[in-house]
């Protein structure tokens, strides 16, 4: 059986380096992400505006990604990162 796809795929994605990127269509603005961010970044506002968390203070700890009840947030490799590689 190939479904469910292994949980590992998801986990690796979560721990990859990059920015937290929102998918605004899924967001219900509950504020759980902002409430749990250890350094007080308003992740919810980013989800409202559809903007990645480009805050240099972001610890990429994954707390917001893990806690979001609607799977809005994920890590994506940043443009900077890719540019650096080129």
């Amino acid at each position: 059986m190939n479904f469910p796809l292994s949980h590992e795929t998801h986990h690796v994605q979560t721990l990859a380096t990059g920015h937290v990127v929102p998918e605004p269509e899924r967001c219900i603005q509950c504020g759980i992400c902002s409430f749990n961010c250890p350094i007080g970044i308003d992740v919810r506002l980013h989800a409202w505006l559809g903007k990645p968390v480009a805050d240099s203070y972001c610890l990429t700890c994954g707390e917001c990604v893990e806690r979001c009840p609607r799977g809005v947030l994920h890590f994506e490799k940043t443009g900077l990162f890719l540019e650096g590689k080129e």
């Binding site: 219900i28 603005q29 509950c30 504020g31 759980i32 902002s34 409430f35 308003d42 919810r44 506002l45 409202w48 009840p69």
Partner: peptide, 27 residues
Amino acid sequence: YSRPGLAYYLTGEIPEKQLQLFSKKGK
């Protein structure tokens, strides 16, 4: 305020003020 978020206030995951969006000055 976030209506779907009400459920998380009920379970105690967030305080009431978290439901209110953009309540802070300037936002």
